[in-house]
Design a protein around this nucleic acid. Structure first.
Lengths: 137, 137
DNA sequence: TAGTTGGGTTTTAATTAGAAACTTACTCGG
DNA sequence: CCGAGTAAGTTTCTAATTAAAACCCAACTA
Protein backbone atom coordinates (compact mmCIF):
# COMPACT_ATOMS: atom_id res chain seq x y z
CA UNK A 1 0.00 0.00 0.00
CA UNK A 2 2.73 2.44 0.93
CA UNK A 3 4.59 1.44 -2.19
CA UNK A 4 1.49 2.22 -4.23
CA UNK A 5 0.93 5.49 -2.41
CA UNK A 6 4.43 6.56 -3.37
CA UNK A 7 3.81 5.41 -6.91
CA UNK A 8 0.90 7.85 -7.09
CA UNK A 9 3.24 10.52 -5.82
CA UNK A 10 5.53 9.96 -8.75
CA UNK A 11 7.98 7.42 -7.39
CA UNK A 12 9.10 4.95 -10.05
CA UNK A 13 12.49 3.62 -8.99
CA UNK A 14 13.79 1.14 -6.49
CA UNK A 15 16.07 3.57 -4.71
CA UNK A 16 13.35 6.19 -4.39
CA UNK A 17 11.06 3.81 -2.59
CA UNK A 18 13.91 2.55 -0.50
CA UNK A 19 14.65 6.04 0.68
CA UNK A 20 11.07 7.14 1.20
CA UNK A 21 9.98 4.06 3.07
CA UNK A 22 13.15 2.96 4.80
CA UNK A 23 12.03 -0.59 4.23
CA UNK A 24 14.49 -3.47 3.91
CA UNK A 25 15.71 -3.92 0.36
CA UNK A 26 14.62 -7.51 0.05
CA UNK A 27 11.18 -6.62 1.28
CA UNK A 28 10.90 -3.85 -1.26
CA UNK A 29 12.11 -6.15 -4.01
CA UNK A 30 9.51 -8.72 -2.98
CA UNK A 31 6.77 -6.08 -2.91
CA UNK A 32 7.63 -4.83 -6.35
CA UNK A 33 7.79 -8.33 -7.74
CA UNK A 34 4.46 -9.18 -6.22
CA UNK A 35 2.82 -5.98 -7.43
CA UNK A 36 4.12 -6.65 -10.92
CA UNK A 37 2.89 -10.22 -10.72
CA UNK A 38 -0.55 -9.03 -9.69
CA UNK A 39 -0.62 -6.51 -12.48
CA UNK A 40 -0.65 -3.40 -10.33
CA UNK A 41 2.72 -2.16 -11.48
CA UNK A 42 4.45 -2.62 -14.78
CA UNK A 43 8.22 -2.77 -15.09
CA UNK A 44 9.83 -0.66 -17.76
CA UNK A 45 13.44 -0.89 -18.77
CA UNK A 46 14.95 2.53 -18.72
CA UNK A 47 18.51 1.35 -19.17
CA UNK A 48 19.70 -1.70 -21.09
CA UNK A 49 23.19 -2.22 -19.77
CA UNK A 50 23.08 -2.34 -16.80
CA UNK A 51 19.47 -3.52 -16.99
CA UNK A 52 17.47 -1.17 -14.83
CA UNK A 53 13.75 -0.80 -14.66
CA UNK A 54 11.32 1.63 -13.31
CA UNK A 55 7.82 0.71 -12.28
CA UNK A 56 4.69 2.46 -13.42
CA UNK A 57 1.10 1.97 -12.39
CA UNK A 58 -1.14 -0.05 -14.70
CA UNK A 59 -4.85 0.68 -15.12
CA UNK A 60 -5.48 -1.83 -12.35
CA UNK A 61 -3.06 0.05 -10.17
CA UNK A 62 -4.48 3.45 -10.99
CA UNK A 63 -7.90 2.23 -9.96
CA UNK A 64 -6.58 1.83 -6.44
CA UNK A 65 -6.62 5.57 -6.11
CA UNK A 66 -10.07 5.71 -4.60
CA UNK A 67 -9.03 3.27 -1.90
CA UNK A 68 -5.95 5.27 -1.05
CA UNK A 69 -7.83 8.53 -0.85
CA UNK A 70 -10.55 7.05 1.29
CA UNK A 71 -8.04 5.40 3.55
CA UNK A 72 -6.09 8.61 3.91
CA UNK A 73 -9.17 10.57 4.86
CA UNK A 74 -10.06 7.97 7.45
CA UNK A 75 -6.62 8.22 8.95
CA UNK A 76 -6.76 12.00 9.05
CA UNK A 77 -10.04 11.93 10.85
CA UNK A 78 -9.67 9.03 13.22
CA UNK A 79 -5.99 8.44 13.73
CA UNK A 80 -4.69 12.00 13.62
CA UNK A 81 -7.96 13.56 14.70
CA UNK A 82 -7.60 16.22 12.04
CA UNK A 83 -4.29 17.37 13.41
CA UNK A 84 -1.00 17.55 11.62
CA UNK A 85 -0.45 14.27 9.87
CA UNK A 86 2.06 15.78 7.48
CA UNK A 87 0.07 15.21 4.31
CA UNK A 88 -3.15 16.76 3.18
CA UNK A 89 -5.11 16.31 -0.02
CA UNK A 90 -6.56 19.34 -1.67
CA UNK A 91 -9.33 19.25 -4.23
CA UNK A 92 -8.10 21.67 -6.87
CA UNK A 93 -11.51 22.11 -8.41
CA UNK A 94 -13.09 23.63 -5.34
CA UNK A 95 -9.95 24.53 -3.40
CA UNK A 96 -10.87 22.73 -0.22
CA UNK A 97 -9.34 19.91 1.74
CA UNK A 98 -10.70 16.80 0.11
CA UNK A 99 -13.25 15.00 2.19
CA UNK A 100 -14.00 12.03 0.00
CA UNK A 101 -17.49 10.62 -0.07
CA UNK A 102 -18.76 7.57 -1.86
CA UNK A 103 -21.04 8.32 -4.78
CA UNK A 104 -22.89 5.92 -7.02
CA UNK A 105 -21.48 5.71 -10.54
CA UNK A 106 -24.96 5.19 -11.95
CA UNK A 107 -27.08 7.85 -10.31
CA UNK A 108 -24.33 10.15 -9.08
CA UNK A 109 -25.91 10.36 -5.66
CA UNK A 110 -23.98 10.10 -2.41
CA UNK A 111 -24.19 6.62 -0.95
CA UNK A 112 -24.97 5.91 2.67
CA UNK A 113 -24.33 2.44 4.14
CA UNK A 114 -28.06 1.95 4.64
CA UNK A 115 -28.66 2.27 0.94
CA UNK A 116 -26.40 -0.62 0.09
CA UNK A 117 -27.71 -4.14 -0.05
CA UNK A 118 -25.31 -7.05 0.12
CA UNK A 119 -26.37 -9.81 -2.24
CA UNK A 120 -24.85 -13.26 -2.20
CA UNK A 121 -24.98 -14.51 -5.74
CA UNK A 122 -23.40 -17.86 -4.96
CA UNK A 123 -21.88 -19.78 -2.13
CA UNK A 124 -19.52 -17.34 -0.66
CA UNK A 125 -15.95 -18.28 -1.59
CA UNK A 126 -13.67 -18.89 1.33
CA UNK A 127 -10.69 -16.69 1.98
CA UNK A 128 -8.62 -19.53 0.60
CA UNK A 129 -10.53 -19.48 -2.66
CA UNK A 130 -10.06 -15.76 -2.96
CA UNK A 131 -6.32 -16.17 -2.67
CA UNK A 132 -6.19 -19.14 -5.00
CA UNK A 133 -5.22 -17.01 -7.97
CA UNK A 134 -1.79 -16.75 -6.45
CA UNK A 135 -1.17 -20.42 -6.98
CA UNK A 136 0.18 -19.98 -10.46
CA UNK A 137 3.64 -21.25 -9.68
CA UNK B 1 -10.53 -6.23 7.43
CA UNK B 2 -12.50 -9.43 7.00
CA UNK B 3 -13.58 -9.16 10.60
CA UNK B 4 -14.81 -5.65 9.94
CA UNK B 5 -16.52 -6.65 6.73
CA UNK B 6 -18.46 -9.26 8.65
CA UNK B 7 -19.25 -6.70 11.31
CA UNK B 8 -20.93 -4.60 8.63
CA UNK B 9 -22.89 -7.66 7.63
CA UNK B 10 -24.32 -7.95 11.10
CA UNK B 11 -21.87 -10.26 12.80
CA UNK B 12 -21.35 -9.37 16.44
CA UNK B 13 -20.28 -12.53 18.21
CA UNK B 14 -17.09 -14.55 18.51
CA UNK B 15 -18.57 -17.79 17.25
CA UNK B 16 -20.14 -16.12 14.24
CA UNK B 17 -16.84 -14.75 13.07
CA UNK B 18 -15.15 -18.02 13.81
CA UNK B 19 -17.59 -19.84 11.59
CA UNK B 20 -17.65 -17.29 8.79
CA UNK B 21 -13.92 -16.86 8.54
CA UNK B 22 -12.64 -20.24 9.64
CA UNK B 23 -9.78 -18.45 11.33
CA UNK B 24 -8.00 -19.92 14.35
CA UNK B 25 -9.66 -18.98 17.62
CA UNK B 26 -6.58 -17.40 19.13
CA UNK B 27 -6.05 -15.31 16.04
CA UNK B 28 -9.64 -14.14 16.10
CA UNK B 29 -9.36 -13.28 19.77
CA UNK B 30 -6.23 -11.27 19.03
CA UNK B 31 -7.92 -9.44 16.15
CA UNK B 32 -10.93 -8.52 18.23
CA UNK B 33 -8.75 -7.37 21.08
CA UNK B 34 -6.70 -5.24 18.73
CA UNK B 35 -9.75 -3.75 17.02
CA UNK B 36 -11.20 -2.87 20.40
CA UNK B 37 -7.90 -1.38 21.46
CA UNK B 38 -7.82 0.78 18.34
CA UNK B 39 -11.38 1.89 18.87
CA UNK B 40 -12.89 0.28 15.81
CA UNK B 41 -15.05 -2.15 17.73
CA UNK B 42 -16.65 -1.78 21.13
CA UNK B 43 -17.27 -4.74 23.39
CA UNK B 44 -20.66 -5.00 24.94
CA UNK B 45 -21.59 -7.41 27.65
CA UNK B 46 -24.71 -9.19 26.59
CA UNK B 47 -24.61 -11.66 29.44
CA UNK B 48 -23.28 -11.06 32.91
CA UNK B 49 -22.92 -14.55 34.23
CA UNK B 50 -21.26 -16.12 32.26
CA UNK B 51 -19.61 -12.94 31.02
CA UNK B 52 -20.03 -12.82 27.26
CA UNK B 53 -19.46 -9.88 24.95
CA UNK B 54 -20.54 -9.00 21.54
CA UNK B 55 -18.70 -6.46 19.47
CA UNK B 56 -20.26 -3.53 17.70
CA UNK B 57 -18.77 -1.00 15.35
CA UNK B 58 -17.91 2.39 16.78
CA UNK B 59 -18.20 5.60 14.77
CA UNK B 60 -14.56 5.11 13.83
CA UNK B 61 -15.37 1.62 12.66
CA UNK B 62 -18.44 2.67 10.73
CA UNK B 63 -16.36 5.22 8.87
CA UNK B 64 -14.41 2.36 7.37
CA UNK B 65 -17.40 1.58 5.20
CA UNK B 66 -16.23 3.69 2.31
CA UNK B 67 -12.93 1.84 2.25
CA UNK B 68 -14.64 -1.53 2.25
CA UNK B 69 -16.99 -0.61 -0.54
CA UNK B 70 -14.22 0.86 -2.67
CA UNK B 71 -12.03 -2.15 -2.04
CA UNK B 72 -14.82 -4.53 -2.92
CA UNK B 73 -15.54 -2.75 -6.18
CA UNK B 74 -11.88 -2.86 -7.08
CA UNK B 75 -11.79 -6.58 -6.44
CA UNK B 76 -14.90 -7.16 -8.53
CA UNK B 77 -13.45 -5.30 -11.44
CA UNK B 78 -9.83 -6.32 -11.39
CA UNK B 79 -9.59 -9.58 -9.51
CA UNK B 80 -12.83 -11.23 -10.56
CA UNK B 81 -13.09 -9.29 -13.82
CA UNK B 82 -16.77 -8.69 -13.19
CA UNK B 83 -17.51 -12.39 -12.97
CA UNK B 84 -19.07 -14.28 -10.14
CA UNK B 85 -17.32 -13.28 -6.98
CA UNK B 86 -20.17 -14.43 -4.78
CA UNK B 87 -21.06 -11.05 -3.37
CA UNK B 88 -22.48 -8.03 -5.08
CA UNK B 89 -23.49 -4.65 -3.70
CA UNK B 90 -26.69 -3.09 -4.89
CA UNK B 91 -27.54 0.56 -4.55
CA UNK B 92 -31.13 0.45 -3.34
CA UNK B 93 -31.80 4.05 -4.30
CA UNK B 94 -31.25 3.53 -8.01
CA UNK B 95 -31.45 -0.26 -8.15
CA UNK B 96 -28.14 -0.81 -9.86
CA UNK B 97 -24.98 -2.63 -8.96
CA UNK B 98 -23.02 -0.12 -6.95
CA UNK B 99 -20.04 1.29 -8.76
CA UNK B 100 -18.58 3.55 -6.15
CA UNK B 101 -16.90 6.76 -7.19
CA UNK B 102 -15.10 9.28 -5.07
CA UNK B 103 -16.92 12.56 -4.67
CA UNK B 104 -15.82 15.68 -2.87
CA UNK B 105 -17.68 16.35 0.34
CA UNK B 106 -17.48 20.09 -0.23
CA UNK B 107 -18.54 20.58 -3.82
CA UNK B 108 -20.24 17.23 -4.41
CA UNK B 109 -18.40 16.75 -7.66
CA UNK B 110 -16.77 13.51 -8.72
CA UNK B 111 -13.06 13.54 -8.04
CA UNK B 112 -10.45 12.48 -10.57
CA UNK B 113 -6.88 11.78 -9.44
CA UNK B 114 -5.62 14.73 -11.46
CA UNK B 115 -7.75 17.08 -9.43
CA UNK B 116 -6.10 16.11 -6.19
CA UNK B 117 -3.02 17.90 -4.97
CA UNK B 118 -0.85 16.30 -2.33
CA UNK B 119 0.41 18.88 0.13
CA UNK B 120 3.10 18.18 2.67
CA UNK B 121 2.31 20.33 5.65
CA UNK B 122 5.31 19.18 7.68
CA UNK B 123 8.19 16.79 7.51
CA UNK B 124 6.57 13.63 6.48
CA UNK B 125 6.40 11.28 9.46
CA UNK B 126 8.10 7.97 8.95
CA UNK B 127 6.19 4.76 8.96
CA UNK B 128 7.61 4.22 12.41
CA UNK B 129 6.14 7.46 13.66
CA UNK B 130 2.78 6.55 12.24
CA UNK B 131 2.75 3.35 14.20
CA UNK B 132 4.03 4.95 17.36
CA UNK B 133 0.56 5.32 18.80
CA UNK B 134 0.60 1.62 19.45
CA UNK B 135 3.33 2.00 21.99
CA UNK B 136 0.98 2.69 24.82
CA UNK B 137 1.93 -0.37 26.79
C1' DT C 1 41.41 1.20 -10.14
C1' DA C 2 38.91 2.34 -6.40
C1' DG C 3 34.69 4.05 -5.16
C1' DT C 4 29.70 4.64 -5.81
C1' DT C 5 25.02 3.66 -7.48
C1' DG C 6 21.09 0.88 -8.74
C1' DG C 7 18.98 -3.34 -8.15
C1' DG C 8 18.73 -6.85 -6.32
C1' DT C 9 19.84 -12.13 -3.48
C1' DT C 10 21.05 -14.98 0.68
C1' DT C 11 21.09 -15.86 5.38
C1' DT C 12 19.27 -15.55 9.68
C1' DA C 13 16.15 -13.95 13.20
C1' DA C 14 11.61 -12.56 14.77
C1' DT C 15 6.70 -12.50 14.16
C1' DT C 16 2.52 -14.50 13.09
C1' DA C 17 -0.74 -18.03 12.09
C1' DG C 18 -2.71 -22.56 12.90
C1' DA C 19 -4.52 -26.58 15.19
C1' DA C 20 -5.94 -28.64 19.06
C1' DA C 21 -6.70 -29.03 23.79
C1' DC C 22 -8.09 -26.78 27.98
C1' DT C 23 -10.95 -23.38 31.04
C1' DT C 24 -14.92 -21.10 32.89
C1' DA C 25 -19.48 -20.44 33.79
C1' DC C 26 -23.37 -21.33 32.75
C1' DT C 27 -28.04 -24.12 30.59
C1' DC C 28 -30.71 -27.96 29.58
C1' DG C 29 -32.42 -32.74 29.46
C1' DG C 30 -33.05 -36.91 31.71
C1' DC D 1 -27.87 -34.56 40.50
C1' DC D 2 -25.10 -35.95 36.46
C1' DG D 3 -23.43 -35.50 32.10
C1' DA D 4 -23.63 -33.07 27.63
C1' DG D 5 -23.64 -28.83 25.30
C1' DT D 6 -22.43 -23.95 24.41
C1' DA D 7 -20.11 -19.45 24.13
C1' DA D 8 -16.09 -17.10 24.66
C1' DG D 9 -12.10 -17.22 25.13
C1' DT D 10 -6.77 -18.90 26.72
C1' DT D 11 -2.76 -21.94 26.38
C1' DT D 12 0.63 -24.59 24.20
C1' DC D 13 3.26 -25.97 20.65
C1' DT D 14 4.52 -26.22 15.89
C1' DA D 15 4.75 -24.50 11.13
C1' DA D 16 4.89 -20.87 7.93
C1' DT D 17 5.64 -16.05 6.81
C1' DT D 18 8.04 -11.81 7.09
C1' DA D 19 11.49 -8.70 7.84
C1' DA D 20 16.33 -6.97 8.88
C1' DA D 21 21.14 -7.17 7.92
C1' DA D 22 24.55 -8.38 5.22
C1' DC D 23 26.18 -9.56 1.02
C1' DC D 24 26.71 -9.51 -4.22
C1' DC D 25 27.50 -7.77 -8.84
C1' DA D 26 27.53 -5.18 -13.04
C1' DA D 27 28.32 -0.85 -14.70
C1' DC D 28 29.53 4.03 -14.42
C1' DT D 29 32.69 7.78 -12.55
C1' DA D 30 36.73 10.32 -10.94
Amino acid sequence: MLVIRDAFNGVTRFEQWQEHLGVARNVLAARLKSLVHHGVLEPRLYSERPPRNEYVLTAKGKDLYGILVTLHAWGEKHVYHDQQSGVVLRHKTCDNILQPRIACGCCNEMVRPREVQVIYTADRPTVGDMMAEDEVA
